[in-house]
């Protein structure tokens, strides 16, 4: 997003986190002082089931270099099955984006529970590494000259 000189480029990653597990996991990572890269911008949602393809693509369109969607582990959803419905949608979207040539690793999905602060930090590291390797996002990015 915005202008960054290529040398000091740091990816910007939009993270859609569910309120009950992944957001709490991120919070725990913070209070437990697990270090993770500062490249993510968190958007809190009630449930991973609330994440629609529009939102993920809007992040890419707005110039996010990567997207992370994270929810409760299957079976742990606060709303019982929100993440299980979402899982089907994510699987299809993930495949469709690869089908049209969006680099694998731009859009990522994970399950992180409220007690997994360390895992959250790990996921963010992994996603940041991947996106750094891919470089700045160019596909599906809106440019208004």
């Amino acid at each position: 997003m915005g202008t960054t000189s290529e040398k000091n480029w740091e990816p910007k990653i939009v993270a859609f986190l569910c309120n009950w597990c992944s957001y709490a996991g991120a919070d725990l990572a913070g209070v437990s002082r697990f270090q993770y890269p500062p490249n993510i911008r968190i958007i809190r949602l009630p449930c991973s089931g609330r994440v629609s393809a529009n939102m993920i693509l809007d992040a890419l369109r707005s110039g996010a270099d990567g997207v992370l969607v994270s929810g409760c582990h299957p079976g742990d959803c606060h709303y019982i099955s929100g993440n299980l419905f979402a899982r089907r949608r994510f699987a299809l979207l993930n495949n469709l984006l690869e089908f049209v040539g969006i680099e694998p690793g731009r859009v990522n999905f994970s399950w992180v529970s409220a007690s997994e602060g360390e895992q959250f930090a790990e996921v963010v590291k992994e996603v940041t590494d991947k996106v750094k390797k891919l470089g700045p996002s160019t596909r599906l990015v809106k440019r208004i000259g």
């Binding site: 079976g75 299980l84 089907r88 992180v112 992994e126």
Partner: peptide
């Protein structure tokens, strides 16, 4: 319809933590 239901065993190899 397939997206109005789920199976606990649905494939999830695309999920980083899985």
């Amino acid at each position: 319809l397939p997206l109005t239901t789920y199976n606990p065993a649905d494939p999830q190899g695309f999920v980083l933590t899985e």
